[in-house]
């Protein structure tokens, strides 16, 4: 009795979690679904064929977002790792750490509005580079804060040990620090990728409609009441996070736990 009630709870939980995703998938395959029909009049690959045919601009947006997010994740993870080392070995470590939290005091949209003036003066408003730089301003401090706990006295001792064993600075990083922090670096890369991937407010202000990332496309379809294409772009939006969650679970979290 108890076993069957547990199974019901588990199934209910699975439905509750998976329903929005399944619904989005069905919606992306649908067309001409009007009240009071319970099921859509059309289910097929018409919408997806339009996407792959390049009609909607979604494929272009998908690859543009992928490019922006990969670049933001790579640069902020690397810079965050290196800079957090300097900050955490500094005598005024606490002050620098507080400064790292500052970009999060403002909502990204407000932060974007503040940046837009300077970006306009620099001539990078409405450019892909401008969007990358703006997202970097958000993701980089996150990476700095993320890596802070790694730079302990013990890590410093490892570094000193490598130095006295006649290792160079490059060898310190390649032979010890990167291998020791490999899992943290991977997690930080995933997290900063996701920060960038789902960014909307900042990108729309800095991109001024000229840089059509996937999140901006999703909102455009929703504004146009094109739910089928909206659902389809949401499916595309989910794809990289799903892959990352799988990779994280399979190769990173299991090794940490």
């Amino acid at each position: 009795m108890r076993r069957s009630s547990n199974s019901i709870v588990m199934i209910a939980y699975a439905i509750w979690v998976l329903f929005p995703f399944l619904y989005l998938l069905v919606l992306s395959l649908s067309a001409d679904w009007r009240f009071p029909s319970i099921l859509p009049n059309y289910i097929g690959l018409k919408n997806w064929a339009a996407v792959l045919g390049g009609e909607t601009g979604l494929v272009k947006s998908f690859f543009l977002s992928l490019f922006i997010s990969l670049l933001v994740a790579l640069s902020s993870t690397l810079c965050g790792f290196l800079l957090s080392r300097i900050v955490n070995y500094n005598k005024k470590k606490n002050l620098w750490t507080i400064i790292s939290y500052f970009p999060y005091v403002l909502a990204p949209v407000v932060f974007g509005a503040c940046l837009s003036y300077y970006f306009l003066r620099l001539g990078i408003l409405g450019t892909t580079f401008g969007v990358i730089l703006a997202q970097f301003f958000i993701a980089f401090p996150y990476a700095m804060i993320f890596f802070s706990p790694f730079w302990t006295e013990k890590t410093k001792d490892y570094e000193n040990l490598v130095a006295t064993l006649r290792g160079s600075l490059v060898q310190k990083f390649t032979k010890v620090l990167f291998p020791l922090s490999k899992n943290l670096i991977l997690i930080c890369f995933f997290q900063t990728f996701l920060i960038s991937w789902f960014e909307f407010g900042l990108s729309s202000i800095i991109g001024v409609g000229k840089v059509q990332t996937l999140t901006i496309q999703v909102f455009l379809f929703i504004k146009e009441s094109n739910f089928y294409y909206g659902a389809m772009s949401c499916c595309l939006l989910m794809l990289p996070p799903v892959i990352f969650i799988y990779v994280n679970k399979r190769y990173v979290f299991n090794k940490i736990l």
């Binding site: 013990k154 040990l161 130095a163 006295t164 064993l165 006649r166 290792g167 160079s168």
Partner: peptide, 12 residues
């Protein structure tokens, strides 16, 4: 330190 040829061993 890397050029001294002096190795420092910690308690740990």
């Amino acid at each position: 330190p890397a050029k001294r040829g002096i190795v420092y061993l910690y308690q740990e």
